[in-house]
Design a protein around this nucleic acid. Structure first.
Lengths: 224, 224
DNA sequence: ACAAAAGTGTTCCATGTACACCCATGT
DNA sequence: ACATGGGTGTACATGGAACACTTTTGT
């Protein structure tokens, strides 16, 4: 490989993040509004160019923090998007990441970002995005269906107590299928994915629901 | 992103291939011997620099053909290796691919490459490789365990007729576990992954074995 | 005859699935 | 009292796992 071969030059790396949360049972993704050309005014996935002295995962985290303020979350690389013309100014290869944050953190982020242009969008109602981000986001939603099978991601969505109907709703929302309530409970409890806290929570006009926490000892196994 | 920011410059993309075959029940990987610095004389995975006008998968295929003569095989991207110092001359991010070729093709390649320095190595007996290729290869072997679950890869290893003991040996070799012969047969036949050809093959001093072919209609399902 | 590897069937257990009624609460 | 959503148990079907003996061939 001759380094001065022009064919090797002018390739840049994009790191692109799809950050999801569940808000009242609705899966949402975090988008930011561009304030520069190209794609001025378009909504976009938070990301940017990789520095030549950082790991791609670090670049993804840095860009996420710079663009949205979110930090301390796990990102998982899931795919590369490399169409030669996907970026108008220069050959840019996008390395795409997925992350998940819990509802409360999402809420805080939303509050603190009131003045800037970032917001949570229902994944079933996504506007036209900059670059090839619609395609990247679709890939992320698919990948999410696989990731939800491990408890790691669930810990991010449910760091504290939750009810089984809430958990079931998240599964159904992401996987786009529905489960029998009794069988869902049975599986979660019998397989020790969740632990009964012996506490309950009341909602208006309903029977109180039991509160559970995730069993942190179980990892990387397929849940369903 | 300001394109003239020096932090965005001088990043190159490596495409790196781990090509596997099964030779008499032994999993092997294709290595080439380097004839240039750095790592002169070391064995290496076949690969090289991505051109700025090609897709990464096309770059991987091009490099594979240039370095080993192999073409027309499926490559699957499985991971990125991005340590900042993984290449001594320039920041190079490696995009790693896996491919599988059948025994006969592997044999032909070995024959036609007699004068050049490429060879098949037992995956349990790998020399010290150039760059971080030992790490990349280990990752590929792990990934192979997942890939073997789909029939796509099996079609590459068994394009023609085979016996069930042969198939079982490949599974056991890759996954490093053993199966009960009766249960293995049952699963393969009952689930229609294989089709009986009503032919048999004789080995010396053994009962003739039935020959099967893969059912090409079944795809992307988990086999075991 | 014997060694070596291939072929074959049954039982048991675990897991998934289908399904209907009662309970606790707020209005 | 009633509407809303939460909690509970049983019966059946399916799939995986354990397990031993017979068959065919070459020497």
């Amino acid at each position: 490989m001759r380094l001065n071969n022009p064919l090797y030059k002018n390739i840049g790396i994009h790191v692109v993040n799809s950050i999801f949360t569940v808000d009242k049972g609705v899966m949402k993704v975090l988008l930011i509004q561009r304030t520069n050309e190209p794609y001025y005014g378009y909504w976009a996935l938070p990301g940017g160019g990789l520095y030549n002295n950082e790991l791609v995962i670090d670049g993804a985290k840095r860009e996420l923090k710079e663009k949205t303020g979110i930090e301390d979350i796990d990102l998982k690389m899931y795919k590369i998007f490399d169409r030669v013309d996907r970026s108008p100014l220069k050959r840019m290869i996008a390395i795409a990441f997925i992350g998940v944050v819990d509802i409360n953190k999402a809420q805080i982020i939303k509050e603190t970002n009131k003045t800037s242009s970032s917001d949570w969008f229902d994944i079933n109602n996504i506007p036209e995005l900059a670059y090839d981000y619609n395609e990247i986001l679709e890939g992320a939603i698919e990948e999410l269906k696989t990731m939800i099978q491990s408890t790691d991601i669930l810990k991010s969505l449910f760091p504290k107590e939750f009810t089984l109907p809430e958990l079931q709703q998240v599964f159904e929302s992401i996987l786009n299928i529905s489960f029998d309530r009794r069988n869902f409970r049975k599986k979660m409890i019998n397989s020790n994915y969740v632990i009964d806290t012996n506490k309950t929570i009341n909602y208006k006009g309903k029977k109180p629901a039991k509160l559970y926490i995730l069993n942190r000892k179980i990892n990387n196994k397929s849940i369903l």
